[in-house]
């Protein structure tokens, strides 16, 4: 299969990587796990003049808990490194499980959380659960850095607010009151399939009252989206099956899915309702699962 030619760069530090991106301008593409960038290059969707490989930036491959800040995860952390992280498994098992179900073992060993975010596709599996956990991201460039809530990063299908010259450095999951979270994905096969629809939720329970909830949808709009109507409806209410079903209906009504080869808009809207209800029930009953 044809692979376009390019100049290859392997900066040793993030600073050096940012300087390279400034110097090379729009002709440069950042290479992390390669599962999306090389795929796009092979099918002719991308032909960058330069690839700036981040493979030497080992600092961006760590997961640690920083007191007062939360869990900080380097952008080069692979899906399998997330899946096997004891720290994440103990605190938010929902995230390792989402990473585990996102693709085959091979791809999970290669692909990175940063790539999953920066690609900006609405079917990506990690952004919904990360947004449900109120994650923020740190973007670094030669001019400094900025931190923003992950949910503000996306603004269209494959469109994000990242600027030329910026590199996603890490993702922070803050210490939080949420008592449960989960991500349920519906794919056309059990393994390695893109989400027809995915729903991530987090809940903060006080007895059987929902103090707070987040409902985040994948493949249900041009970008990953929060179903804020459903969230507002749930806040402060005592849980019941009827309540969760109604929240599902509201999320379904808010969703803006499209027809695609993987499912019709109507089917997806229906799935949003069903999965929202199930995900809420699971997060309420099983905690971070």
């Amino acid at each position: 299969m044809y692979m376009p030619d390019f100049e290859y760069h392997t900066p040793e530090t993030l600073t050096e990587a940012c300087a390279l991106l400034d110097e090379l301008g729009e002709k440069a593409t950042v290479l992390a796990g390669g599962t999306d960038v090389l795929h796009k290059m092979k099918v002719g969707k991308l032909a960058p003049g330069h690839l700036v490989s981040l493979k030497n930036l080992d600092d961006l491959r760590t997961i640690s808990h920083e007191p007062g800040r939360g869990i900080v995860m380097g952008a080069l952390t692979s899906h399998n490194a997330i899946y096997t992280s004891r720290l994440l498994q103990e605190r938010y098992l929902s995230l390792p499980m989402a990473a585990h179900t996102m693709a085959s073992n091979q791809i999970c060993n290669m692909g990175t959380v940063g790539g999953n975010i920066v690609n900006g596709v609405p079917s990506a599996d990690l952004p919904p659960i990360l947004i449900a956990l109120n994650a923020s991201i740190r973007l670094v460039s030669s001019n400094g850095e900025r931190t923003m809530p992950l949910e503000d990063f996306f603004h269209g299908s494959a469109e994000t607010v990242i600027n030329q010259g910026e590199i996603l450095a890490d993702i922070t999951i803050p210490d939080q009151p949420a008592t449960g979270s989960t991500y349920i994905k519906f794919g056309l096969r059990r393994s390695g399939a893109l989400a027809v629809v995915g729903v991530a939720v987090s809940v903060t329970m006080d007895g059987d009252t929902l103090q707070d909830a987040r409902v985040v949808l994948a493949s249900a709009a041009p970008t990953v989206m929060r179903a804020r109507g459903a969230e507002d409806f749930l806040r402060g209410k005592k849980i019941s099956d009827e309540l969760l079903a109604e929240a599902g209906d509201r999320a379904s009504a808010e969703s803006r899915p499209r027809d695609s080869i993987r499912g019709s808009a109507e089917y997806r809207r229906n799935l949003v309702g069903v999965l929202t209800k199930r995900a809420l029930r699971k997060a309420i009953d099983e905690g971070h699962a």
């Binding site: 299969m1 290859y8 390669g34 795929h39 690839l51 091979q106 791809i107 060993n109």
Partner: peptide
């Protein structure tokens, strides 16, 4: 394109699709 796994190798002991990896 990373779907079929026939190019699987072990890289530092872990399976990866060698078709989505640059030799460099």
């Amino acid at each position: 394109l990373g779907d079929c796994g026939s190019c699987t190798i072990l890289l530092d002991g872990k399976p990866v699709d060698s078709c989505l990896m640059l030799a460099v």
